[in-house]
Design a protein around this nucleic acid. Structure first.
Length: 376
RNA sequence: GGGGAGAUACCAAAGUGGCCAACUGGGGCAGACUGUAAAUCUGUUGGCAUACGCCUUCGGAGGUUCGAAUCCUUCUCUCCCCA
């Protein structure tokens, strides 16, 4: 993997770049649609590639390990072939599931013991076997196993958790370096900064992964219940330390406004379930604000779904029609909303990139953030 | 013509003397959702009030009772069975 900065180099500030992978080039800043189980929910690969023009998508190691499992993915020749997606894939390690499935797991020095949320069976994840699994998946970018503590955790817990994560990162990275890709294309490994909402812990964690010398770095443990201002502050603290010349990935973020603010603070990569999950639940993100298409006020609004939108669905369907689909519980509703939202998210980061390159990002941000955050 | 069952809120359907402004579904309205255990979950759904609460409701009318969706009388309507 190679990362090239195309804009001015500043520690904390918006930048534009390019990530080269074996499966294609990713312009940054970029948003990566989440496709946990080998599918971006409710969206066909074809639409993802053409209409939405996603440059890279996510998969999830924990979920893919449980279903379809290592054997099937190995037989398929990796996730790209299995799901027929030829562009880059980034896989999360399952670190987030250490957080979100906290009722059914036990964390130890060696790794984390899970109970499957599907059948209750016991499984053990280590920094090493999670790398192995991601070798089988064949993701272009694999994530380290980390512990993602809740946003309101105590300092002492955050400190111990961060140190455990650091030991896991090193074990994972060592294992990564000692193993080879299985399918002839390159893979890379991103370590993750933790440290909850404590600036000194964050700084220490950032220094630690900066010294590891990975090709890219991730910021984890944000947007997990802490106030938004804390998240922004942590991004600044961390990006002040992380190397300039390597991509920075803010995991799990966020709302359109969060993403612009993240870009402004020097983040290059984002992923979030919001455009798809909220889309399936009737929320549309647009340049003019946020729409809950299920609301009665759209019942007889026959204007285009999104007059400013650039996707096929934005101009071929009306708000009234989409509301009808949701009212009727038709599965096309969530599909159209997901396509619209992902297209919007990709256009949002694409526009941010243009504004960075032509030097008007700050001015643009000032105008666009209130607009896209407004509820219609 | 004879016999039987029933009428409850937007719909379906519980309740059969006070704990009932009325269980539960559905539908409606609104909200939540940030490295996806989510095409899920939550609230609300007679009127008025921020709230305490007040007012009008269980086919219509009348009655019994301290008190009625629940008991009695009568009327109207619906459904089923037999002719």
């Amino acid at each position: 993997m190679f990362f090239t900065l195309k804009s001015e180099k500043r520690a904390v500030g918006a930048r534009a770049g390019e990530i080269q992978t074996s499966h294609g080039i990713i312009p940054t800043p970029i948003f990566m649609p989440v496709g946990t189980l080998g599918t971006v929910k409710a969206v066909l690969q074809k639409d993802l590639e053409s209409d939405i023009d996603a440059k890279i998508i996510l998969g999830n190691t924990y979920h893919l390990y449980l279903r379809p499992g290592e054997s099937i993915l190995g037989q398929a020749g990796g996730l790209h072939k299995f799901m027929n997606w030829e562009r880059p894939i980034l896989t999360d390690s399952g670190g987030f599931q250490v957080f979100s499935l906290s009722d059914i797991r036990k964390i130890r020095e060696e790794g984390v013991e899970f109970r499957s949320h599907i059948d209750g069976s016991k499984h053990f994840f280590t920094p090493e076997n999670v790398v192995e699994m991601q070798r089988v998946i064949g993701s272009d970018i694999m994530m380290a196993l980390d512990e993602c503590p809740p946003g309101d955790c105590e300092r002492e817990y955050a400190r111990k958790s961060m140190h455990l994560t650091q030991r896991w990162l090193e074990r994972g990275f060592t294992h990564f370096k000692n193993t080879e890709p299985l399918y002839g294309h390159k893979q890379t490994f991103f370590p993750i900064v933790q440290g909850a909402g404590f600036p000194d812990l964050r700084r220490e964690a950032a220094k630690h992964i900066a010294d590891m010398g990975a090709e890219g770095n991730a910021i984890g443990g944000l947007s997990v219940g802490e106030p938004t201002e804390v998240m922004y502050e942590m991004i600044e603290v961390v990006n002040d330390v992380l190397p300039l010349e390597k991509p920075r990935y803010l995991m799990g973020v966020g709302t359109p406004a969060n993403i612009i603010e993240g870009i402004a603070r020097g983040v290059d990569m984002f992923d979030c379930v919001m455009p798809t999950r909220n889309g399936r639940n009737g929320m549309l993100f647009t340049w003019r604000g946020i729409i809950n298409i299920k609301n009665k006020k759209w019942e007889n609004d026959f204007s285009p779904l999104d007059p400013d939108g650039e996707s096929y669905v934005d101009h071929h369907f009306t708000k009234a029609y989409l509301r009808h689909l949701f009212q009727a519980g038709e599965s096309l509703g969530p599909q159209l909303a997901s396509i619209h939202n992902l297209n919007f998210y990709l256009r949002l980061v694409g526009t941010a990139r243009e504004r960075i390159l032509d030097g008007t990002f700050e001015q643009w941000k000032k105008n666009v953030v209130p607009q896209i955050s407004h509820r219609l």
